[in-house]
């Protein structure tokens, strides 16, 4: 993708690097000789659309090109015609959604009657889920209803979600669920 910095600069007449020491925790020797650099200067810039409400605000994501390659900063995209650089409190906290120590980073499994989660591999989890889906589907599948009409469905499996998915993900998701014969497919628009 191509995102230029063309209008990222908003204030007129600013000099490139001034004499500034902001915040705290910096070594101040020599105090005014330290020309502060923007933390985002060498970061990769990508555009995104906020994942909260449906206004569809644009944001710029600054990702470190070094080290762990994580997000340094996310702020409003001034070239976006809807929000023109602004974001609300939730949008302004987008970085903390991604760089968050509370996030799930491994598949987890809870066995029947167990008191705890167990970390598992993706392959193990998805193979086991596929097995459960097949068992349940095949046991509850109805080719015909009481009237004898062909219905090819299961009412033994339900799926809810998800307005949190991208359009393309939504499409393959519903295709997979419908191919399995699910009729109980519902999502956020219903509640």
């Amino acid at each position: 993708m191509k995102v230029t910095r063309r209008e990222f600069i908003q204030v007129t007449g600013a000099t490139a690097a001034g004499l500034a020491v902001s915040g705290l925790g910096f070594d101040l020797k020599p105090v005014k000789a330290h020309a502060q650099m923007l933390k985002t200067k060498y970061a990769k810039e990508t555009t995104t659309i906020c994942c909260y409400c449906a206004v569809g605000c644009g944001a710029i994501v600054h990702t470190s090109k070094r080290g762990d390659g994580r997000v340094i900063n996310i702020e409003g995209d001034p070239d976006h015609v809807i929000n023109r650089g602004s974001l609300c409190s939730k949008g302004a906290s987008l970085k903390q959604l991604t760089e968050n120590e509370n996030r799930l980073t491994e598949p987890m499994y809870r066995a029947p009657y167990s008191k705890e989660w167990k970390q598992v591999s993706w392959d193990w989890a998805l193979s086991k889920i596929a097995k459960r889906v097949k068992e349940t589907r095949d046991a509850t599948f109805k080719v015909k209803n009481k009237k004898g009409q062909v219905v090819n469905r299961t009412e033994g499996i339900v799926s809810v979600g998800s307005s949190a998915l991208d359009n393309e993900e939504c499409w393959i998701y519903q295709a997979l669920m419908r191919s399995l014969g699910l009729v109980y497919v519902e999502h956020q628009a219903r509640i």
Partner: peptide, 29 residues
């Protein structure tokens, strides 16, 4: 508040002004 001096010196608006949706926060000469 440090006026987001790093931002301002690099031609950006202070973070609070940049994010304000309604024009309540303004910054400039």
């Amino acid at each position: 508040c440090d006026m987001c001096l790093d931002r301002v010196h690099n031609g950006l608006l202070p973070a609070c002004v940049k994010t304000c949706p309604t024009g309540a926060m303004n910054f400039g000469e």
